[in-house]
C-alpha cells in the first residue's frame, strides 16, 4: 500500500541507484567476459586485437589443451586438496574456538579474547614467519599453506557474535534434557549456525583457493605448485617489464595470449561454481520459529 504518491525525487533516486548498480555490475562483469572470449577465440584474432566482448574465430582447443595439460591438472589437484582440507579444518577449528569464547561467564575468557585480538593487530612479519615455517620443516609441504591460515580471528569473531545471538533458552532446554556441552555444540549450536558457517566456509575456501602469497614463499617444488602459482607463471611470462633481458629461447617458448586467457578462465570457474551452492544459506533464516513465545 502506497501511503503517498511517488515524487520526482523518489524516481530520480531509483534511477540513480539502479543506474549506478548496473554500471558497477558491468565494470566487474565485462572484464570477465572479455577474458572468457579471449580464451575461446583464435590466436590470429587475438594478435590483431579483434576480440572485445564476443569471441572471434570460436574454438575450444585452447581451453581443452590447458585443462588437459599435465602441469595444469597437477596444480589444480594440489589447489583442490589444499582448499578442501584447509576449509574443512579451518571451519571446524574456528567454529569450536568461537564457542567457549561466546560464553562470557567463563573465568578468564576476556583475557583469552585479548590474546586472540592481539594477533589481529600485531604479527611477526614476513621473515620471522618464513623462518618459523622453515624451522617447522614445512617448506615445500602443503601444510605450510593450511596450518598458518587455519584460524582467521576475524572470521572467528563473526561466528562468535552469531553464537551470542542464539537464544540462551535453547541451550538451557537441551541441558535440562541431559545434553552435555559437546552434544549442545554439535547437535544444536552448529546446525543452527549453518548460515554463518557456510558464509565463513566460503571465505576460507576462496582464501585458500586464491592464495598466491604463501605458496610463492613456501613452495619451490614444481610438483607442489598450486594453481595460483602456475597461473602467475603463465600470465607473467609475457609481462614486458624486462622483455629485453629475455633470451630468444624464452621468447620462442612463450605461450600465446589465448593460453593465458584459458588458464585464467580454467582456474577461476571452479571457485565461482561454489557460490550458487552456498547462496541459499546466505538468504535462509534458520532461527525463525525455533523459540516460541
Amino acid at each position: 500500500m502506497h501511503i503517498h504518491k511517488r515524487t520526482f525525487g523518489d524516481w530520480a533516486l531509483d534511477i540513480f541507484v539502479y543506474g549506478f548498480m548496473i554500471v558497477l555490475g558491468l565494470v566487474t562483469l565485462l572484464p570477465m567476459i572479455h577474458v572468457f572470449s579471449k580464451s575461446v577465440s583464435s590466436d590470429w584474432a587475438l594478435v590483431s586485437g579483434r576480440v572485445d566482448l564476443l569471441p572471434v574465430g570460436f574454438q575450444l582447443d585452447t581451453l581443452a589443451t590447458v585443462v588437459t595439460s599435465y602441469a595444469f591438472g597437477r596444480a589444480f589437484l594440489i589447489s583442490a586438496i589444499v582448499t578442501s582440507v584447509g576449509t574443512l579444518l579451518s571451519i571446524l577449528v574456528t567454529a569450536i574456538t568461537a564457542y567457549p569464547l561466546s560464553k562470557r561467564h567463563l573465568p578468564g575468557i576476556s583475557f583469552i579474547m585479548v590474546l586472540f585480538v592481539f594477533t589481529m593487530l600485531f604479527n611477526g612479519g614476513l621473515i620471522p614467519n618464513y623462518l618459523l615455517i622453515r624451522e617447522l620443516h614445512l617448506i615445500n609441504n602443503l601444510w605450510s599453506l593450511i596450518l598458518p591460515a587455519m584460524i582467521s580471528v576475524f572470521n572467528m569473531l563473526v561466528i562468535k557474535s552469531y553464537y551470542e545471538g542464539l537464544p540462551e533458552a535453547l541451550e538451557e532446554s537441551a541441558r535440562i534434557d541431559g545434553a552435555r556441552s559437546y552434544t549442545i555444540l554439535f547437535r544444536i549450536i552448529l546446525p543452527l549456525s549453518m548460515p554463518v558457517l557456510a558464509t565463513i566456509a566460503l571465505f576460507y575456501a576462496v582464501g585458500f583457493w586464491n592464495d598466491y602469497f604463501s605458496p610463492m614463499l613456501y613452495i619451490s617444488d614444481p610438483a607442489l605448485k598450486t594453481l595460483q602459482l602456475h597461473l602467475r607463471d603463465v600470465v607473467m611470462e609475457n609481462d614486458t617489464a624486462n622483455a629485453i633481458n629475455r633470451s630468444a629461447d624464452d621468447l620462442m617458448n612463450m605461450s600465446p595470449e589465448s593460453i593465458r586467457a584459458a588458464t585464467v578462465v580454467a582456474s577461476t570457474v571452479p571457485i565461482l561454481l561454489v557460490y550458487p551452492f552456498l547462496q541459499k544459506y546466505f538468504i535462509k533464516g534458520v532461527l525463525i520459529g525455533s523459540v516460541k513465545g
Binding site: Y130, I139, N140, M216, D233, M236, D239
Partner: peptide, 21 residues
C-alpha cells in the same frame, strides 16, 4: 629441481639465500 617464480624471482631468491636453504 625447483624453480623460482616467474614474477619477481629475485625476492624469493633473496629469501632462500638469506635463510640458507
Amino acid at each position: 629441481y625447483e624453480a623460482l617464480p616467474v614474477d619477481k624471482p629475485e625476492d624469493k631468491l633473496n629469501l632462500l639465500i638469506a635463510s640458507s636453504e
